[in-house]
């Protein structure tokens, strides 16, 4: 078992009343799974991913990641866990504008204090794999959306995470670019990376081997492919 959510509740107070963003979510994810989360806008997909990604807090419930109880970990330990095992891909790419493609991909390694030679090798591999060697000295603003997302994925993968979280990774892309990204995900998944993605698109969701449907913060049902 890679991770396990048990009866997770997340709420905010509005006018003295609790508004639930996540309402009693339980979920088991095994290593090597590819899960799609679907649901209408505002249903809590991003919130759920952020909770899984340890970027966001929740008020009640248990979260066990790789046999560590995340809900009772200190900030520092959680950050360590996160740095070690999780990669994130966003709809809006979120590359650092002031860094080149090469530097963007390299940065997570800097935070892990890897050696310079090792960094060079890993980044070179990644550039090669995603076919963006020629773009390595360009800044994000000089790339197309699809290329930026490729860089975003490369950056998420550079530290060899076990779990890749992707929040509408193709939302800003045309359908052809989207399909390429999905193919890439499938490949990665076959190599053993666990993937959880949030998406609006049925066809993209179909790449997953399990689909979870959310509505108003609650898990409605799940389908397996």
């Amino acid at each position: 078992m890679l991770l396990q959510l048990n009866h997770i509740y997340k709420w905010v107070k509005q006018g003295g009343k609790r508004v639930f963003l996540l309402n009693d979510i339980s979920l088991d994810v095994k290593e090597g799974e590819f899960i799609s989360i679907m649901g209408p806008s505002g249903s809590g997909k991003s919130t759920l991913l952020n909770v899984i990604g340890m970027l966001d807090e929740f008020q009640e419930g248990e979260y066990i990641f790789n046999e560590e109880p995340v809900h009772s970990l200190k900030e520092k330990q959680r950050a360590k866990l996160y740095k070690e095992y999780i990669g994130f891909v966003f709809q809006a790419y979120h590359l650092i504008d002031e860094l080149t493609v090469y530097e963007n991909i390299e940065t997570p390694l800097l935070y892990k204090n890897s050696k310079s030679s090792e960094r060079k090798a890993l980044v070179a591999d990644m550039l090669d794999r995603f076919n963006i060697v020629g773009k390595k000295d360009l800044f994000p603003a000089q790339l197309s959306g699809g290329q930026q997302q490729l860089v975003g994925i490369a950056r998420a993968l550079i530290a060899k995470p076990k779990l890749l979280l992707a929040d509408e990774p193709t939302g800003n892309l045309n359908s052809k670019q989207g399909e390429e990204i999905m193919e890439l995900f499938r490949e990665l998944n076959q190599e053993g990376v666990t993937i959880i993605q949030a998406t609006h698109s049925e066809s993209n969701a179909a790449y997953g081997n399990r689909i979870i449907h959310l509505l108003d913060g609650s898990k409605q049902h799940q389908t397996s492919n």
């Binding site: 002031e98 940065t107 935070y111 998420a156």
Partner: peptide, 16 residues
Amino acid sequence: AGEVGVRKVIGAGRSS
């Protein structure tokens, strides 16, 4: 802020 957010997501600690 955006840059800070990204850096945190890709593993930057507060002290760094």
